[in-house]
């Protein structure tokens, strides 16, 4: 990538685009030429959008979700149930849960999961902030919605160990069979979990 074929500005743009996730040198070149050939208004909008996102978007002081104010829309909403907090790894997970329309409580974004091999421990996540929120006695339930992989499970185990002694109800998202799939293709871990968490009819 460092051996640029084009001169000056166009190569700078290709290099900048190439650093984005999922964009290789070929795609970067294609996007750069698309921008070059399109109306200057489209380019100006793009520049403006990139600038404002960096300027305006902050992290909610309460839950750590992305927000344009000091507190995010969900934390500010008085209709949301403040007694329940759903703990997730990333802001993207908040949106995924919001899409279900099942949960009307508030969120807490950890910013990742505990993974000692990558140097991420409890102190690198927003766990201290969560514990601070829990000192408010109105909170009665914590739903741990970390990813259903080992890092997520271990993070949930760690949090449960911290929170349970406080007398707060701690629950973990169920895991099991994906809707719309065939049983025979399920892996043994997922199928085993589905068995463990089966429900009475």
């Amino acid at each position: 990538m460092s051996t640029g074929m084009y001169e000056g500005a166009i190569q700078d743009l290709i290099d900048a685009l190439g650093r984005l996730p999922g964009i290789g040198p070929k795609s970067a070149q294609r996007i750069a030429f698309h921008i070059l050939q399109s109306d200057s208004e489209i380019a100006a909008n793009l520049v403006e959008a990139v600038r404002t996102v960096k300027e305006r978007v902050k992290f909610c002081t309460q839950c750590g979700n992305v927000s344009e104010e000091t507190e995010c829309r969900i934390c500010r909403d008085p209709r949301r149930d403040g007694t329940k907090i759903c703990v997730v790894e990333e802001s993207k997970d908040v949106i995924a849960i919001e899409r279900t329309r099942e949960f009307r409580g508030k969120y807490h974004v950890l910013g990742g999961a505990i993974s000692p091999i990558d140097g991420i421990g409890p102190d690198q996540l927003r766990i201290r902030e969560l514990m601070q929120r829990l000192s408010d006695s109105t909170i009665t339930e914590i739903i741990l919605a970390t990813d259903p992989n080992l890092e997520g499970e271990a993070t949930a185990t760690y949090l449960a160990r911290l929170i349970k002694p406080m007398g707060i109800n701690v629950s973990r998202l169920a895991s099991g069979l994906p809707v719309g799939g065939d049983l025979e293709y399920a892996d043994e871990v997922t199928l085993g979990r589905a068995f463990e968490g089966r429900t009475n009819l």
Partner: peptide
């Protein structure tokens, strides 16, 4: 989530 072997490829 539909991955058939994701669960087996964990540390």
């Amino acid at each position: 989530t539909m991955s058939k072997f994701g669960a087996r490829l964990e540390p």
